[in-house]
Nucleic acid binder design. Structure first.
Lengths: 198, 198, 198, 198
DNA sequence: TATGAATGAGTCTTCATTCAT
DNA sequence: GATGAATGAAGACTCATTCAT
C-alpha cells in the first residue's frame, strides 16, 4: 500500500488530522485491501476502520453507506487494472504482438498472486452485485482492445477468454500453468485460421 | 427444482410432516438454490428455512451447523456436475472428438444460464473457502479427463482452461459468445502443434 | 462408575433393551457424574443422553423435566454421603473419638478429590436452588450427629464447621491442608473448654 | 447499590443518556448484583440489561463479551472484600487480637446476609471457572494475612478455614451460628498449643 | 414402551446506522 | 468537521419440551 506523498511541510506524524482527503483515501484503500483478501461480503465498517487506523464513525462520515464505500474501493481496484493494461499494451507494442511475448505477460501475471487475487475480487463482486459488472469488465474489454491492435477482433476475444480461464485456474490450483502450456495455447489461438485446408 | 411427487394416496398438501428424508432434501435443495442465486456468503438459516418452507429450527435440527448444510448443498451441485460430465463424455464419444461437436456442447451449455450459474457458484464458493476446492475442481478435472480420451493431455488442459474462460464470460456478459467464435477457438486449440507449415 | 450387576441370564450385550430399571439408573448416574464435573447449570438433556449412551428422548421419557432428573441425581449423590458417614462413624467408634483419628479421616477425605468434588457439587447446587438444602445438609447434619457420639453438641458443630472450611479450602487451593495442621485444629477444637488453666 | 446521586442541576431523570462512565458502572453493578443473587451461570446479557435499565446492545457495546463483563463484575465484588478486610484489620489492631473481638467480627459479618452472599458468590464462581480462583482467594489469603499480625501462621490459617466454614454454614442454614459458639471455637483455635500436656 | 421428529424460546454476538455533541 | 455513544435487527446456535408413531 504506497502511502504516497506526505508532501512537504506540515508535521509528518500528524498525517491523519487535518487531511480529509488523505483520510478518505486511506479508508478506501483499506476497504480495497480487505475486499481483495476476504471478499466483498466480509467487508464491514468495523474492519475497514481498524485496517485504516481510523475511528468507526469516520467510515460512515465519509461514505453514506457501506455500499458506497465498497463501490469506491472496487473502483480503485479497477483503476489499477487500467494501469496494468497500459503496461501490457506497451510491452506488446514493443514486440509486434509476438505470441511468445503475450504468453510471457500472462505467465508473469500469474506469478503475482496479489494481482490475480485483486482482479478476481472484482469478478467475484460483480457476480454478486450486477451493478458492478461494468467495473469488472474493464479488464476483459480492455484486454480485447489492447489485443485488437495486433490481431483481429475474434482472435482478441478468444485470447481474452483464454486469459480469464488462466486466471480462474490460478485461483483454484496451487500450481499455476507453466509457460510452455500457455505459450502453446496462445500460439494456437493466434495462428491464422488456417489455409492449409485447401 | 423437482419437487418429488408424493405419488398417489395420502394428502398431497401434507408433504412436510413426517417425511424426514424429504424434508432434509428439501432443505439441502433450498440451500443449493440460494447459493446459486446469491452466493455462499448470503446463505443464512433463516433464508434456507423460508425457501424450503420449513421452521427455522428444522435447519439446525438436520444439520449441526450452517457450514455442514452449505457443504452438503455444494456437494449436491457438484454431483450434478458429474451427471453433466457423463453426458458430455457420451456425446463426444459418439462423434469421435470432433471440434465442432465440442464447441456445440460448450455453446449449448451457455444457453442454460441455470447450469452456468450453478457451476460458477461452486467456483465462487471455493475461492472464498479453500476447503471446497476439491469440489470445485470436479468440473475442471473431470473435463480434462473426458477430453483426454480424444486429445493429448496438454490440449485437454488448454481446452478446459478455455471452457472456464467461456463460463466466466457468460457470467459477466449479457450476450454469450456465439457458436462460430467458440468453434474457431476450440478448433485452433485442438489443431496439431503444426510442423505441417513448412 | 460401577456398572453393577448385569445379573444372570439374558444377553449381556443387550443391557439396554428391556431393562427399564437399568436404563433409568444409567441416566441418573450420568446426570450425577455431569453435575459433579460441570455443575448443575451445565446439565442438559442432551449431555445426559450422550453420557448415558441413551437416546435424547429417553431422558425426557423417564423424567418429566430436567429439574426432576437433576433432583434425583443429587439425591443419588446424597445417598453416597450416607455411606461415607457410616464409614466415618465406624472408624471413629473403633478409636474412641481420638482427635488424631478424626483429623486422619478428614485428611484422607481430602486425598480423594472425586469425593470432595461430589460433596461440593451438592453444596453448590443447594446455594443455587434452596429446595435442595435438605439434601446438601445431610453431610453437615450427619457429621454433627456422628461426632455427637464422642463430644458435646457444641464441639460437634464446631468440628463440622471446620470440616466444611477444610473442604472449601481444598476446592480452591491446589495443595490441600497438611495432616499436622488439621490435627492441630481438630485437637484444639476438641480440647475441653479449659478451666484446667487455673 | 448506591445509585450515584446525580447531584444538583441537569435533568435528574435523564441519568442514562450521555453518561458513559455511569452507564458502564451501572452495567457492572447490575451484573454483580445478579451474580450474587443467582450465580454466575444464570448471568445473561438480557438480564443484565434489564436490571441496569439499559438496552441489550449496551451490554455488548461496553464489554466485548459476557465473560469480560462477568469478570469485571466479580472484580468489583473482590474489591469490596478488600475494603471489608481493611476494616477487620483495623478493628483487630485496636483490640490486640482478642479472640472475643475476632468472634464478634465474624458474627457481625454473618448478620449481613448480603455480604455473605456476595463473598460466597465469588467462591462459587471460582469453583466453576478456575481462572477466577485468584479473585476468590483474596478473601481467604487476605484474612490469613490480617490474622498473622496477631497469631502465628498456622493458627491464622486454621482460623481462616474455620471462618470459611462459618460462611458456608450461613449460606445453607436459616439460622446462623450464635456468638457464643463462634467465640468458643475461635478461642480454642487461638489458645496456645498447650503445655498442660507435660 | 420408547424414540425420532420438530419447534419456539432464548443464548451470545456482530453490525449498519443514527444521533448528540 | 468529526466522533463517541447507542441501539434495533439479524446472525448462528442450543435446548427443553411436545408430539406422532
Amino acid at each position: 500500500m504506497p502511502d504516497v506523498d506526505v508532501g512537504a511541510g506540515s508535521a509528518p506524524i500528524e498525517r491523519s488530522r487535518r487531511d480529509p482527503e488523505g483520510r478518505r483515501r486511506a479508508i478506501v484503500e483499506a476497504a480495497a485491501a480487505l475486499i481483495v483478501e476476504d471478499g466483498l461480503t466480509d467487508l464491514t465498517h468495523r474492519r475497514v476502520a481498524a485496517r485504516a487506523g481510523v475511528s468507526l464513525s469516520a467510515t460512515t462520515y465519509y461514505f453514506s453507506s457501506l455500499e458506497e464505500l465498497s463501490e469506491e474501493a472496487l473502483r480503485l481496484l479497477a483503476d489499477r487494472i487500467d494501469t496494468e493494461l497500459a503496461a501490457v499494451a506497451e510491452t506488446l507494442a514493443a514486440h509486434g504482438g509476438d505470441p511468445a511475448v503475450l504468453a510471457g505477460i500472462l505467465h508473469g501475471y500469474l506469478l503475482e498472486p496479489t494481482r490475480v487475487q485483486a482482479d478476481t475480487a472484482l469478478y467475484l463482486a460483480a457476480t454478486q452485485r450486477p451493478a458492478l459488472r461494468p467495473l469488472a469488465l474493464r479488464w476483459f474489454d480492455g484486454l480485447v482492445e489492447v489485443l485488437s491492435n495486433h490481431v483481429d477482433a475474434g482472435t482478441a476475444t478468444a485470447l481474452a477468454v483464454y486469459a480469464d480461464g488462466v486466471t480462474v485456474h490460478a485461483m483454484l490450483h496451487d500450481e499455476i500453468l507453466d509457460l510452455a502450456a500457455i505459450t502453446r495455447a496462445v500460439t494456437a489461438l493466434m495462428r491464422p485460421d488456417d489455409g492449409s485446408r485447401r
